[in-house]
Amino acid sequence: MSEDLLARITESIVGGEPESVVALTRKALESGLQPLEIINQGLVAGMNIAGERFTRGEFFLPHLLIAAKGMQGAMELLEPELGARQQVHEAVGTVVIGTVLGDIHEIGKSLVGTMLSANGFKVYDLGVDVPKEDFVARVKETGADLLGLSALLTTTMIGQREVIEAIVQAGIRDQVKVIVGGAPVSQAWADEIGADAYAANAMDAVEVARRVLM
């Protein structure tokens, strides 16, 4: 019964039915399943399948976004439960992400956050239009291993360079790896501004994050 519920959660994530994901998660909690079980064997399993399909070219951004919406909805239910049971999600790394100053594009950056969370990273999402000072302060405060910078406009990608300059000035450049991404961003741009890596999409971001931390 409980295994069946977890499998159905996974299926609903992959099948793109965010409402059922949330309903099934609620049911799973009521039936006594542990939040961590639901996350790892239900939600994350589903996100991983969706992610693999994305990598194989069978899924595209809309499918991944719909899957992530289910995951996010379920996490809203589960996070208070995790807190109440004092359970912690063991993290493989800590990431600060945000969209740079002057840019208010949210969706791609949040999807990266969700995929990293689903893959065991502790994610601090600073939102959009984030000043460089905030990135520096949060990296220091959280001791983050990774900094993810998103820019969706050719006019704002310069902000990624400015954040990197700011973390150099703050003297924390060698404590944190910087990954850049966004529609106009490329490997060449990442090289030019001295980022550690470029991630082409949300799934790639997970791969790249694992790679730069090795």
């Binding site: 809309p62 976004l65 719909i66 919406k69 208010i104 949210e106 959009v128």
Partner: peptide, 18 residues
Amino acid sequence: IELTTHPNFTNEFIKAMS
């Protein structure tokens, strides 16, 4: 109305993609 930062935009967007 600025959509990019509208609290319901992402939700409506994802819903409307189906």
